[in-house]
Simulated scan of single mutants.
Amino acid sequence: MKIAIHGRNFNESARPFIENMFNELAKREIDVSLSPTFRTFLDQQEIIHKTSLVYDKPEDLDGTKLVVSMGGDGTLLETISHVGAKEIPAIGINVGRLGFLATVPPERISDMITALDNGQYRIDERTLVAIDNADLFDGINFGLNDFTITKTDTSSMITVHTYLNDEFLNSYWADGLIISTPTGSTGYSLSCGGPVLVPHSQNFIVTPISPHNLNVRPLVVEDTAVLRLEVKSRSNNFLISLDARSRIVDENTQLTIRKANFRARLIKMLDDSFLNTLRSKLSWGLDMRN
C-alpha cells in the first residue's frame, strides 16, 4: 500500500506518537511519500521517518491509496487542495486545536493504521465549492469549507450585488459575504450566525458578515445553484478566500460560484460520528451546574 502524509508543526507532546507512527508504517512495509514542507519540518526536528519520497503536485500522488493529514482542520483543508480532482481519500490526525475535521487523536494513531490496513473504515464524500475564475488561485479553484469575500480596509463596508441563478437576490452592504458548504457550516459561517448543516445536506449557505441592514439573515440555497457576485468598494478592491488561500482582486472582477464537479473523500473510523463531534466540540448539552 502507498500513502502520502502532509503536516505542519506540532506540539512536543505529540512527538512519541508521530515517531511510533513512522515505525509502524515501516514495520508494515507501507510506502510513504511526504509533502515538501512536512519533510523539511521532520528533518528539522530530527524525527526519523525512513522515507525519501516527496510529492510536489497532484500527479505525484498517482497510485496513492490515501493521504494522511497531520495537524488541525486547516492542515486537512490544505491536504484536500493537494489531492484535488484525483479524489484520493484523506484522513486527519488532530495535533492541532479544535479538530472538527481532523478527528483522530494522536493516541489513536496505532488503531488508525490497523484499521486502514484492514479496510475497517468508511468513506465520507463532501461537496466542494468552486469559483469559475480558476486563474485567481493558480488552478486550485475549489474549497472544502467556504468561499469568502471581505473588505480590505479597516472602516468602509463593501456592497456585494448577488444573483442566484441569474435572478437578483440582494445587495449585501456588509463587511463581506460567505458562501459555505455543509462542511464549512461549523466554521466561519457559524461564527457569523449561520446555521449548522449535517455534512450530506445538498445545500450552500449564503452568510453576510456584519451586515449594515439587521434584517438580512443567512440564506440556505440548493447546491445546484449558481451564484454570481459583483462587488463595489471605496478602496476599488476586495479580498477573496477559498479556505486558507486568499488574494486581493480588483472590484471589476465578477465572480461565479458553484459546486465543484468532484468531491472530497474523507476517511472516517467506524466509531466516528458527526453528531458526537457536534456535542463534544461545541459543548452541546454541557451544564456547568452538573
Rank of each mutant, 00 (worst) to 15 (best):
E87V: 01
E167T: 10
L197D: 02
F100T: 08
A14D: 14
E107D: 09
R258N: 11
N145E: 09
E78R: 14
A90H: 06
I88Q: 01
I80N: 05
T256L: 04
I5H: 02
R263G: 02
P195W: 14
T148Y: 09
S13V: 13
A174R: 01
E12A: 11
E230F: 07
R247E: 13
V226Y: 02
K151N: 01
F137R: 06
R289E: 01
K65P: 12
T183R: 11
Q254K: 13
P105F: 06
D60L: 00
F10P: 06
C192K: 06
T150W: 01
K268G: 09
F147K: 03
S35H: 09
S201L: 13
N165M: 02
F204T: 13
S283V: 08
V198G: 08
L25A: 09
E24R: 10
H6E: 12
F168K: 09
E167Q: 11
D124L: 04
F17P: 03
E29Y: 10
S171H: 00
D287H: 14
F238P: 03
Q44E: 12
V216W: 13
F238C: 03
I248H: 07
R258D: 12
S273H: 05
R28H: 08
N252G: 07
F100K: 01
T51D: 02
T256D: 01
V220C: 08
R39P: 00
M112N: 02
R97E: 10
D250V: 02
Q45K: 06
D272F: 10
S81A: 06
N203S: 15
K65H: 07
T183F: 00
N145C: 06
K268A: 08
I30Q: 02
G72I: 15
S110D: 10
S185T: 13
N276T: 07
K57P: 01
R8A: 07
M288V: 13
Q120R: 04
R126C: 14
N133R: 15
E167H: 06
N11A: 05
N290H: 06
V249N: 12
V216A: 14
L270D: 04
T64F: 03
I5T: 05
V249I: 10
Y188P: 04
N118Y: 04
I140K: 15
F137Q: 15
I109L: 03
L66N: 00
A174W: 05
T224C: 12
I179S: 00
Q45L: 08
T127N: 00
S235A: 14
S33L: 01
